[in-house]
């Protein structure tokens, strides 16, 4: 267990600079985006009030309506969603890099890792844990950031112009956040559970490539494609199966894919990958 934790810590440590940069970009971009949106909105309101000789915010809100957090954010959506997309892209790339940097990084670190006097399989779990922690860490950051940004909106916007909404309402109606931050616990575990299975499948494919090189690459691509096909296949059976049966079947296939990917990775790490 101690060795596994040490390996996880090592993986976290190796990525922390990029990870911190991603977190900083998210915080700065979203805060700055919201600040700019509110400022320019208030400016626009003042300009409109002058033009139409409206004296108070209350009168303005009566004529033009209040502006919600959602609308304010949508004025500068790129500042909001841009960093989220960057984080997703970087983490997707890192799913591959977490293995390949051991082979192609400085001093071919993989020689030391694979020679450790312990099960090589711990390396697989450590990398999988690290990826999940990176993902969930950014999710947690966004969860903390959203209420803070809403508080900032309430602070900066004149009360007469603002329209109250909860974090959950905002998330449920946001096309990306409703998937990244599902407020329904069952959905949260479903999405991130699926992500977890997907990462194990990709890890198995990466290890196939590492074990058999070009042939492994082809096998890996085929494995990922087959896994995607098998996983989504029950959805096409809606004319013979009831929804709970389709769901159960997908759950079962997900579990089989996870176990198969873990077994493939374990076998490849133990018997096929040599240094």
């Amino acid at each position: 267990m101690i060795r596994y934790i040490k390996l996880v810590l090592m993986e976290l440590h190796r990525f922390w600079k990029i990870y911190a940069a991603l977190a900083a970009i998210t915080v700065i971009s979203q805060t700055a985006g919201l600040w700019m949106s509110i400022r320019s909105h208030i400016k626009r309101v003042h300009w409109e009030m002058e033009l139409t000789s409206i004296g108070t915010y209350a009168e303005f809100a009566k004529t033009y309506g209040r502006t919600s957090f959602r609308s304010i954010v949508s004025f500068n959506e790129l500042f909001f969603m841009g960093p989220v997309m960057i984080c997703i892209a970087v983490l997707l790339i890192y799913v591959f890099l977490i293995w390949y940097r051991d082979w192609y990084g400085k001093n071919a670190f993989v020689y030391r890792l694979l020679m450790l006097p312990a099960s090589r399989f711990r390396l697989f779990w450590a990398k999988l844990t690290a990826i999940m922690l990176f993902v969930l860490g950014l999710v947690a950051l966004q969860i903390v950031l959203l209420p803070l940004l809403m508080a900032m909106y309430r602070q900066m916007m004149p009360a007469e112009l603002s329209l109250a909404e909860s974090v959950f309402s905002y998330v449920r109606h946001h096309i990306v956040f409703q998937i990244l931050l599902p407020p329904h616990a069952a959905d949260f575990f479903l999405y991130y559970g699926l992500g977890f299975v997907a990462v194990t499948v990709v890890f198995a494919a990466i290890l196939m490539e590492r074990a058999w090189r070009l042939k492994g690459l082809i096998a890996g691509i085929l494995y990922v494609s087959a896994a995607t096909l098998v996983m989504t296949f029950p959805l096409s059976l809606d004319y013979v199966l009831y929804p709970h049966e389709i769901w159960g079947l997908m759950g079962g296939i997900g579990l089989v894919l996870f176990l198969a990917s873990v077994w493939i990775s374990r076998t490849l790490l133990a018997k096929k990958i040599t240094v």
Binding site: H13, G137, V139, I143, V144, F168, A185
Partner: peptide, 29 residues
């Protein structure tokens, strides 16, 4: 120090996500 930072990081994740899901369940429409 690394253990401590990692523990804080994991604690932050568990607390933030746990609170978020708990509050969402406790504050329906």
């Amino acid at each position: 120090k690394r253990y401590f930072i990692a523990a804080i990081f994991v604690g932050f994740i568990v607390l933030a996500i746990g609170l978020y899901l708990g509050l969402a369940a406790a504050s329906p429409l």
